[in-house]
């Protein structure tokens, strides 16, 4: 396993060394003492596992396409922003805008997520074992948001086709957000996703798939001309 020690080094030097080790063929890299530095591990496009043994700052794992990140601490704003594919797991909590604008892949936050979780998602899955803050899912176009705990105000505001599931209480639904009864296949999907991504002890304390609420767009805000419908369908 490759190793990169962040102590006394700039973010640029750390990221350059991570990329250097990947180039040399490393498939697992331990990043020690990240010290909440910003922009760690951005724009990595290879299938490599990167373990960070502490907390990270802003935009960790942003713009990635394929790698697997494991963050032992918490993460600052913009975790995995605009990720194309891969997996980012945070043992702690994540700041504002986690998984914002992701196109694919999976983001797992084992504690809480702050405001604007998964805003403008265009694919992928984000799973929060704890609670999420204000305005999660805002303008989400595709993908899935799962919050096992409670959700904050303006939840799922102005969404397109993102589908949200909440295991706890929703402080307030956003504009055009509606609650639906989850189907049997929704419950199966939730049970298998939680079992796959959460450690067994953590999974035990979360609701069963059938007990989640499903939140989707009411489609009242949609304003597409019918002539564009085919283009829109293809884009989805």
């Amino acid at each position: 396993m490759g190793e990169v020690n962040c102590e006394g080094r700039s973010t640029q030097e750390i990221n350059a060394e991570i990329k250097q080790q990947i180039k040399k063929g490393a498939t697992e890299i331990l990043v020690r003492n990240p010290g909440a530095r910003h922009n760690l591990g951005v724009a990595i496009l290879e299938r490599v596992t990167i373990r960070l043994d502490g907390s990270v700052g802003y935009y960790c794992g942003g713009l990635i396409d394929g790698p697997n990140f494991e963050i032992a601490g918490s993460a600052g704003w913009g975790l995995a922003e605009s990720m194309m594919n891969g997996q980012v797991v945070v043992r702690g909590s994540a700041g504002n805008g986690a998984a914002a604008a992701i196109r694919g892949g999976t983001v797992v936050i084992q504690q809480d997520a702050a405001a604007r979780l998964g805003v403008s998602m265009k694919g992928g899955t984000v799973l929060v074992a704890g609670n999420c803050g204000y305005m999660a899912g805002f303008m989400g176009q595709k993908g899935t948001i799962i919050v096992c705990g409670n959700a904050g105000e303006a939840f799922a505001d102005s969404m397109y086709e993102t589908v949200c599931f909440v295991g706890g209480r929703i402080s307030e639904l956003g504009t055009d957000a509606v609650v639906e009864q989850p189907s049997g296949s929704d419950a199966e999907f939730l049970d298998s996703t939680l079992a796959h991504h959460l450690p067994p002890d953590l999974r035990k304390s979360k609701p069963a798939g059938r007990d989640f609420k499903k939140i989707v767009s009411g489609r009242k805000l949609w304003n597409f001309d019918k002539r564009e419908w085919k283009t829109w369908q293809e884009a989805l």
């Binding site: 909440a36 700052g57 918490s74 700041g95």
Partner: peptide, 21 residues
């Protein structure tokens, strides 16, 4: 308003939380 300020001044094993709305 950045975790890096807390971590760089105060080493140790503790949790940093983001304030809620």
């Amino acid at each position: 308003n950045e975790e890096i300020a807390i971590r760089s001044a105060l080493p140790g094993d503790y949790q940093v939380r983001e304030a809620e709305v």
